[in-house]
Design a protein around this nucleic acid. Structure first.
Lengths: 226, 226
DNA sequence: CGGGGCTTTGAGAATCTTCAATTTAAGTGG
DNA sequence: CCACTTAAATTGAAGATTCTCAAAGCCCCG
């Protein structure tokens, strides 16, 4: 259901003698980047497709009036840089130190896709999955209260990241990024998290690493605080 | 940039002797549906792809707790029903009388796509475009104030619909649908529209047909009312 | 012409934002 | 490695916006 699954899928299907994704990875360049560094910029010619190898990144859009807004967070395994035109639609920036990404030359990838129907299907479904995920996210952002927004955000992030046994979510991004993404003020995000901590729904390992104690209450605040 | 363009693209490229989309349309069944009727339902086996021929529809998601939310409005030309799994991800319902849609058998379409790389590319880009549009919409929904949400919604709808010379937008959907979509209360939507009317930014032809008088002010409320 | 859904308007309560200040964490250079 | 500098997170209080509850008017359709 998520692009994050792509690594798992890859592993699961590796018994196939000739998985075309291997051909694709042979064309990729693996690159590091620092916290805050730009991986690609909106408006540039889209000569590459990308995938996060490790770390985390934010995908930003620029509105007409020049304001930047985060439209997605990218975790290891996530592809990005797709465009229906020749222009990169979004800017992507690393948000944690030690972020690595893979860069695929678009022209070569498209040639490969044309030659391998299975690869074509794979990428079509990749795009469909990204689309579903994006629409599913609108469910979260479309929530009305800060409690609901932050709660479903935490649950979403925990589902996207590899589940650690203690339900810890390593967020990586700052409160400012979360606020931007959820269309809330930083103060409200902070206050809401504090409130959830007080109510026993979450626990802090660090400011950016949170343990989920009551998942159901996060998804539906009615249950948590009466 | 929008899936709405697909008809225009089709026309523009019709000089080609064998546009593969023609092959695809030959497999389609054209079907009418009444206002409120369900075209497809979330959770069903995804045996078809669909396209709106005329009228308008709403795409709804069901959250875990059973609440329905509108994640997109579909206009003539828009494809839908894509899934990365075998399940239909969303429910789609007609919202105006006289809505017609096209239904494409998925298995046949996928066979055609495998056989025609150009068609494959077309659908890949279709999915990418839908993705961009979805993310662009998050810019709108991510706005903080009701003024900004409703304003950018009107502008978006006017851009998606065929531009009439007097900048009239035929919305089709009710205030309830708009409120659901923008995560606002019906009353706030109504009050905001009334306020915009008073400020001279819009004019009503009917309740669901609105003329845009000051597009810039709608996109950036700072300009409109000081 | 009656009914039901849709739209609008009002007023009070709840929520969120803004402005301001403090505390905590992180990064830098000596 | 520590002191220093800057960024991030938290908390408080006042003001603005939005939501909820309630009711009235409108309009299409049968």
């Amino acid at each position: 259901m998520q692009t994050t699954d792509s690594f798992a899928q890859h592993a699961a299907e590796s018994h196939r003698p000739l998985d075309p994704l291997v051909l694709l990875d042979a064309r990729a360049v693996r690159m590091p980047c620092k916290r805050g560094a730009e991986i690609c910029r909106a408006g540039e010619i889209a000569r590459f497709w990308y995938r996060i190898a490790s770390g985390m990144a934010r995908q930003c859009a620029l509105s007409a009036d020049g304001k930047r807004q985060i439209v997605d967070f990218l975790a290891p395994g996530d592809f990005f840089g797709f465009s229906s035109t020749d222009e990169q639609p979004f800017t992507v920036e690393a948000i944690v130190a030690g972020t690595w990404f893979l860069r695929y030359p678009r022209s070569q990838v498209e040639q490969l896709i044309d030659a391998h129907p299975r690869l074509s299907e794979r990428f079509r479904k990749l795009a469909f999955a990204a689309l579903s995920r994006m629409q599913a996210r609108m469910l979260h952002l479309g929530r009305t209260t800060a409690q609901q927004k932050v709660g479903s955000f935490l649950v979403e992030m925990s589902e996207r990241s590899a589940q650690s046994p203690d339900h810890e979510v390593r967020l990586g991004m700052t409160r400012y990024d979360i606020a931007d993404y959820l269309a809330l003020s930083v103060e409200t995000v902070s206050r809401t998290l504090t409130e959830m901590k007080r109510a026993g729904l979450i626990r802090y390992s660090e400011a950016r690493a949170i343990q989920i104690l009551d998942r159901d209450a996060l998804e539906d605040p009615e249950l948590g605080y009466s």
